[in-house]
């Protein structure tokens, strides 16, 4: 099996710039793992929690440094080894977080179909009318056309993040190192992808068990 060092990943240059611990020798510190929730339903995270007893193994092997389900940290930390990113990039907050996590993470994983293809959040991309992007089209539909007489577009700078014109897959915004498809990926698939990483190896993403969308 390819190891991380043998198989250069797209972000290898970046990873080398960071002080990755993935390839560390004996006595290496625990892997610093983050999970991020962008525009998605959190189903991928729920599936992650379905890992059941593997979660205990994981807890021994990694340090969860940022996660909506297992950490209270509000600011994405520095020197993260692996980050599972659920969800598409739909608003400016998603975009900002994606850009900053890329700066601070050695190995970024698109976690689930939304991160990979924009999937369900990306359906709004189909609703752009001439001269108006999909954000404006869906907002006007929801807040003006279907509203009673008092309808108005939401406008709360700094509180409600602005929608991007199009919902984007993660890899159209930052380089991604590994893709873990599924809606959601099953717990077994997540485990099969994460387990090799714990020993510094790259998982083999092949065949219907590992690759099927949906």
């Amino acid at each position: 099996m390819d190891t991380m060092t043998q198989a250069p990943l797209p972000a290898q240059a970046h990873a080398q710039a960071q002080s990755s611990t993935l390839t560390g020798g004996p006595g290496r510190p625990r892997l610093r793992l983050a999970t991020v929730w962008l525009a998605g339903c959190s189903g991928c995270h729920m599936s992650f929690l379905d890992l059941d007893e593997f979660l205990f193994e994981l807890a021994d092997a990694v340090e969860i440094v940022y996660s909506p389900v297992a950490s209270d940290t509000k600011i994405y930390p520095e020197r993260v080894d692996v980050c599972l990113v659920e969800g598409a990039v739909a608003n400016v907050d998603n975009l900002e977080l994606a850009l900053s996590l890329r700066q601070r993470t050695a190995l970024v994983i698109s976690f689930g179909d939304c991160a990979i293809s924009a999937n369900v959040p990306g359906l709004r991309n189909l609703f752009s009318s001439p001269g108006r992007d999909s954000a404006r089209t869906v907002l006007e539909r929801g807040y003006l056309e279907l509203a009673d007489a008092t309808g108005q577009l939401p406008h709360a700078p700094g509180i409600v993040p602005e929608l991007l014109p199009r919902v984007l897959p993660l890899h159209e915004v930052i380089p991604v190192d590994l893709y873990l498809p599924g809606c959601p990926p099953s717990a077994e698939r997540i485990r099969a992808a994460i387990a090799p990483l714990l020993v510094g190896e790259r998982p083999r993403m092949e065949g219907p068990e590992m690759l099927r969308f949906g």
């Binding site: 608003n91 001269g131 108006r132 992007d133 954000a135 006007e140 409600v160």
Partner: peptide
């Protein structure tokens, strides 16, 4: 006057 081109920043925040 052409309608604003698709792909401009999101509409949220415009009055």
């Amino acid at each position: 006057a052409l309608p604003a081109a698709v792909g401009l920043p999101a509409a949220v925040g415009t009055p």
